[in-house]
């Protein structure tokens, strides 16, 4: 579901507004052959950047979504014992059961290594995994090779992928990890930048509505005590909601009476707080 959603949304990376600073940092990371670690508030476009890089460089993108239960080997390769067992019992496949290699499938990192051309490898939300996973993974990315123990074979990267790693954690990753990455923090876009971003998403949005909604949005972000501030993603959805409502009038924003706050605030205490301050329900 999520994958489908992102696919369609990112179809044109022309939708990503890239600033020069970031482009420069990406270039340096590629030249130094170092992974680029991106941090930033949720919704600032860390993941989208990788899509934009892939499109810009015209390279295929491979996404590894890190999960807390994930082991490093899952990201490298899988030995499909069950299929092999099934084949050995029923023998109705074209695979050669005595050849284990036929049952080795590449994981996301493995696929990036064995791809015929250079790829962009996005390792999304690395902070979800434990530190051992993080450090071991960087070892693999450093050496650009790993072993498949079942067949005693070493997989070497044909092309060094462009590695982009994202992290949501406010906490810093381990020192050895950081030492091997280039780092960039995507700051929350200012109003001017936000306007450019919105223009990409809503080319026909009225200037009046754009100004009013951006103004309200930044005011809402400044409410004290909000745990999860609304981000770009929420703003875009909110504007969608506003434009879809035939009864909506811009004056309600100007009067400080914004509707659909639930689109912006995802946590109920935050929503309650915002409603209390802006006095609507």
């Amino acid at each position: 579901m999520k994958e489908k959603e992102t696919l369609s949304r990112f179809k044109g990376a022309s939708r990503y507004v890239l600033d020069n600073e970031l482009a420069q940092i990406v270039n340096v990371s590629m030249a130094l052959e170092m992974p680029l670690l991106l941090k930033g508030e949720p919704g600032t476009g860390k993941t989208m950047l990788a899509y934009a890089i892939a499109e810009n460089l015209e390279m295929p993108l491979i996404v590894l979504n890190v999960k807390s239960s994930m082991k490093l080997v899952d990201a490298l390769y899988q030995y499909d014992t069950l299929t092999r067992l099934n084949d050995s019992r029923f023998g109705d496949s074209t695979r050669d059961v005595s050849n284990i290699e036929e049952y080795i499938r590449m994981g996301k990192i493995g696929r990036a290594f064995t791809a015929e051309r250079r790829t962009v490898l996005l390792i999304d939300e690395i902070d979800k995994a434990d530190t051992d996973f993080q450090d071991d993974m960087l070892d693999v990315l450093d050496q650009m090779q790993f072993d498949i123990i079942e067949v005693d074979k070493t997989v070497k990267a044909k092309h060094r992928p462009v590695v982009v790693i994202t992290s949501n954690a406010k906490k810093d990753l381990s020192d050895p990890f950081l030492g091997r990455c280039n780092f960039h923090h995507i700051a929350f876009p200012d109003a001017e930048m936000m306007q450019r971003i919105l223009k990409v998403h809503f080319p026909r949005l009225e200037e009046d509505l754009m100004q009013a909604s951006i103004g309200t949005f930044y005011r809402l972000r400044q409410i004290e005590g909000i745990e999860k501030k609304p981000a770009t993603r929420e703003l875009i959805n909110w504007i969608r909601a506003l434009t879809a409502d035939p009864d909506f009038k811009i004056s309600s924003l100007k009067q400080g009476n914004p509707p659909y706050l639930g689109v912006l605030f995802k946590k109920s205490p935050d929503l309650a707080l915002a409603n209390r301050i802006f006095g609507v329900n």
């Binding site: 940092i25 810093d172 950081l178 780092f183």
Partner: peptide, 22 residues
């Protein structure tokens, strides 16, 4: 590697390489 051609470049490149936390 000739990647840094101005002070502006230096600003962002040096930051991404030297500084590891916002």
């Amino acid at each position: 590697k000739g990647l840094v051609l101005s002070v502006d470049d230096f600003y962002s490149v040096a930051r991404s390489i030297l500084i590891k936390s916002e």
